[in-house]
Computed example of a mutant assay.
Amino acid sequence: MRSRVWGGTTAVVLGALLVAGCGGGAKEDAADDSPGTAGSGGYPVTVTDCAGARTTFAKAAERIVTSNAAGLELLLRLGARDRVIGTGFPPGKGTLPGALDAQARKVTVLSRSVIPKEKLLGSGADLYLDTFAAMGGMGGGGMGDTPREDEFKAAGIKHIYLKSTACAARSRKPVTDLTGVESDSTTLGAVTGTGARAKELVAGMRKTVDAVQKAIGDAARSARPTYFFFDYDAGTKQPTVVCDRQVANAVITLAGARNAFADCAGDYRQVGWEDFIAKNPDWIQLGVRDRGSAAANQKAFDEAEQWLKANPATKGLKAVKAGHFLRIGSERTTIAGVENADTVREIARTLYPAKVG
C-alpha cells in the first residue's frame, strides 16, 4: 500500500487522531467581530478552539511554529513569513505556487513528520499552530507525543488550532462550504497583525465561489453528477474515500457535484472496491499528490488513470468508459486552504463547460 503523502512527507489521516470535544462546525466556531475577539482588529485579541477554550494575545505573535504545511501555507499567504521560525511536515518542493514555494524553502524544518516534544518546547516559539491535536480536555494527545497544555504554558508557547482541519471530523454536520478556511484566515490575521490581508484572502475566495454558484444555478441536487475522489496515493488494495466532514466534500458540493461518499460521516474512511463500484460515479478525480515537477505529476496522473482502465473491477464504470477524469492535485482538494476556492472553479469548469468560464 502506498503511504498517504502530505506535501512530500508521510501524513496520518486526521480523523483517526481526534478525540471527543470538537463538537461545533466551522460556522459555529468562527470568531466574531465583538470587542476583544479575532475580528476586532486590535489587541488584546482572543480566539477560541473547537471546544470553546479561549486564548488571548496581548500583542501579535512573533515566533510561530506550524505543525504542518497547511498552517505554514496560510501564514505565507498572509505575508507573515518573517514570523515563522519552524515547521513540521514541510511542503514538498513545488507543492506551493510560485513565490510561496521559495518562501517555504527558507523555513526551518524542525521535523519531516511530527515535531518531537522536546524540540517543539525548546524552539523559542511564542505560538504553535496545530493542525492535528485533540481538543477534548485540552490536554494534548493529538499526534505523537504532543505536549500537554501546562507544558506549553511553562514554555511560554500559546497553542491554537486550524479549526478547518482539526475540528472537521468531529463536526455535528457535513462540511459543505469554506467558512472554516475563512475563519482560520481571519483568526491568523488577527494574531499576526495581518488582518487586512486576511480580509483580502477571504474576499477573493468568496468572489470565486460565488461566481461558480451563480453560473451553475440552482439545479436540483439529485440531478447533479456524482463525483469520486480517487486517492491513488493512499493505495489501491482498499480505496480510501473522502466523507462528508472532509473539506473535499465542500469543494465537490460547491462545484455543483455530489460526493459519491457523502453518506459516510467523518473525514476519511476505507471501503471495499465493491462499495465504490456500486456508486458508479459520473466523474472521477485522480487524487495525486505533487511530485515536484509537471512531468512527474503527469506521469503519476497517467498511472492512476491507467490503473482504473486496466483493473477488471473498475474498467466498466461509466466514468472510466467515458474518460471522465479530472487531473487536479490532491493537496488543493483535501487540505483546507485558500486554493480550495480555485479547485471549486476548476471542477465546475469541467462539469459545466458551457456555464463556467
Results as ranks from 00 to 15, higher is better:
residue 174 P to L: 03
residue 176 T to C: 00
residue 176 T to A: 05
residue 178 L to M: 07
residue 179 T to W: 07
residue 180 G to R: 13
residue 183 S to E: 02
residue 184 D to Q: 13
residue 187 T to E: 08
residue 188 L to C: 06
residue 189 G to F: 01
residue 189 G to M: 06
residue 189 G to D: 14
residue 190 A to K: 02
residue 192 T to C: 09
residue 194 T to R: 14
residue 194 T to S: 10
residue 195 G to I: 09
residue 195 G to H: 03
residue 195 G to K: 03
residue 196 A to P: 03
residue 197 R to N: 04
residue 197 R to A: 08
residue 201 L to C: 05
residue 201 L to V: 11
residue 202 V to N: 15
residue 204 G to M: 02
residue 205 M to P: 12
residue 205 M to F: 01
residue 206 R to W: 00
residue 206 R to L: 02
residue 207 K to C: 01
residue 207 K to Y: 00
residue 209 V to M: 11
residue 209 V to F: 01
residue 210 D to R: 12
residue 210 D to M: 07
residue 211 A to G: 14
residue 211 A to K: 14
residue 212 V to E: 08
residue 213 Q to L: 12
residue 213 Q to F: 00
residue 213 Q to W: 00
residue 216 I to S: 06
residue 216 I to F: 05
residue 217 G to S: 12
residue 217 G to N: 08
residue 217 G to W: 01
residue 218 D to Y: 02
residue 218 D to C: 09
residue 221 R to I: 11
residue 221 R to D: 14
residue 221 R to P: 02
residue 221 R to M: 10
residue 222 S to E: 13
residue 223 A to L: 03
residue 223 A to G: 07
residue 223 A to S: 13
residue 224 R to H: 02
residue 225 P to Y: 04
residue 226 T to E: 02
residue 227 Y to F: 15
residue 227 Y to W: 13
residue 228 F to R: 04
residue 228 F to C: 03
residue 229 F to G: 09
residue 229 F to I: 09
residue 230 F to Y: 12
residue 230 F to V: 06
residue 230 F to D: 15
residue 231 D to T: 15
residue 232 Y to E: 07
residue 233 D to N: 15
residue 233 D to T: 14
residue 236 T to E: 11
residue 236 T to H: 02
residue 238 Q to M: 12
residue 239 P to V: 07
residue 240 T to L: 14
residue 240 T to E: 05
residue 241 V to L: 03
residue 241 V to F: 04
residue 242 V to D: 05
residue 243 C to P: 02
residue 244 D to P: 01
residue 245 R to P: 00
residue 245 R to F: 00
residue 248 A to R: 04
residue 248 A to E: 08
residue 249 N to R: 11
residue 250 A to M: 07
residue 251 V to Y: 01
residue 251 V to M: 09
residue 252 I to K: 11
residue 252 I to Q: 12
residue 252 I to L: 11
residue 253 T to Y: 13
residue 254 L to Y: 04
residue 255 A to R: 07
residue 255 A to I: 02
residue 255 A to L: 04
residue 257 A to H: 04
residue 257 A to S: 12
residue 258 R to Q: 15
residue 261 F to K: 08
residue 263 D to N: 13
residue 263 D to W: 01
residue 264 C to W: 06
residue 264 C to E: 13
residue 266 G to E: 05
residue 274 E to F: 05
residue 274 E to Q: 15
residue 274 E to A: 13
residue 275 D to V: 08
residue 276 F to C: 14
residue 276 F to N: 05
residue 279 K to I: 11
residue 279 K to N: 09
residue 280 N to A: 08
residue 283 W to V: 11
residue 283 W to T: 06
residue 283 W to Y: 14
residue 284 I to A: 09
residue 284 I to E: 03
residue 285 Q to N: 15
residue 287 G to W: 03
residue 287 G to N: 05
residue 288 V to G: 10
residue 289 R to A: 11
residue 290 D to Y: 03
residue 290 D to V: 11
residue 293 S to Q: 04
residue 294 A to Y: 02
residue 294 A to V: 10
residue 294 A to Q: 13
residue 294 A to W: 00
residue 294 A to K: 06
residue 295 A to C: 01
residue 296 A to T: 06
residue 297 N to A: 11
residue 299 K to F: 00
residue 299 K to Q: 14
residue 300 A to P: 00
residue 302 D to Q: 15
residue 303 E to M: 07
residue 304 A to T: 00
residue 305 E to Q: 10
residue 305 E to M: 03
residue 306 Q to V: 01
residue 306 Q to W: 00
residue 306 Q to A: 13
residue 308 L to G: 12
residue 308 L to D: 07
residue 308 L to V: 05
residue 309 K to S: 05
